[in-house]
Amino acid sequence: MKRDLISIEDLSEKHLRDYLELGKRVEGTSPEVCRKVLAGRILGVLFYEPSTRTRLSFEAAMLRMGGQVIGFSEALNTSVAKGESLADTIHTVEQYCDAIVIRHPREGAARLAAEVSRVPVINAGDGANQHPTQTLLDLYTLQNLFGRVDGLRIALVGDLKYSRTVHSLFHALARFKDVRFRFVSPETLKMPEYVIEASEGATTEVIETTSLEEAISDSDVVYMTRIQRERFPDPVEYEKVKDAYRLDRAALQNAPAHLKVLHPLPRVNEIATEVDSTPHAAYFPQAGYGMTMRQGILAHLLGGKL
């Protein structure tokens, strides 16, 4: 049966651990051998809205596995702009390639694509819903930095209300053992009840706070998010909270030595550049782990041997 990667909600704890194992296997394979794994295969990269970072990461991953890439990075000049349905676009593109990566502003677009496609589909973001490869690369980064995911104390900081990255990361982490959470956000950007309700890890510890300082002194990981203007219905609300949390060297003074700072990138000013040179900064390596993780994902879904 065809394999897709659409939503973290489809993945059990075992699936998540298997994906982490895949990343490790890519790491342990020489670049020369990697380049043979997907040689001759073509990845269709359909980005209906721009996201340079994610697209580059997927393309680099495919190239490193020896495959090639076709696609578009915005829908403006394509048949899509002329009113072609998503299903028709997929039926066309699947004739050209062996797997499809799709990013789309509508929620559920990747699921629909997977339903109609005969080749594997990977969700690279569907509106405010899911971005599963981001979540997997976050987990993989933790696994690499700490040698484990179980038992970590993780502070999720910033926009916990609108950030889908944080929602699916929370759901995924809650499936591991004894992960403890600090939710750090302004009152207006608190983690929604429905997200907590839908998490399957009923026994995990969650502490909500508005104090970043308190969370820093008591965590292994600080996961920062950008407070995104476009998510706010009311611009006045955005102005009130946009700089609520800013991480600089001073804020890290009482941090445990092993504390790592992650961020899905791009950052604006929620992490000062002076943090980059501290041993806590892990957000650029995180991008590197992201590519490795995606190499593993592509190999797995396309049936390449690792």
């Binding site: 349905s85 998503l86 299903a87 502003p105 509508r106 629909l112």
Partner: peptide, 15 residues
């Protein structure tokens, strides 16, 4: 039909 206006099912034909 889905109450979420951003849901793809409200934007595709024959879904």
């Amino acid at each position: 039909s889905c109450p979420n206006p951003g849901c793809i099912t409200n934007h595709e034909r024959c879904v």
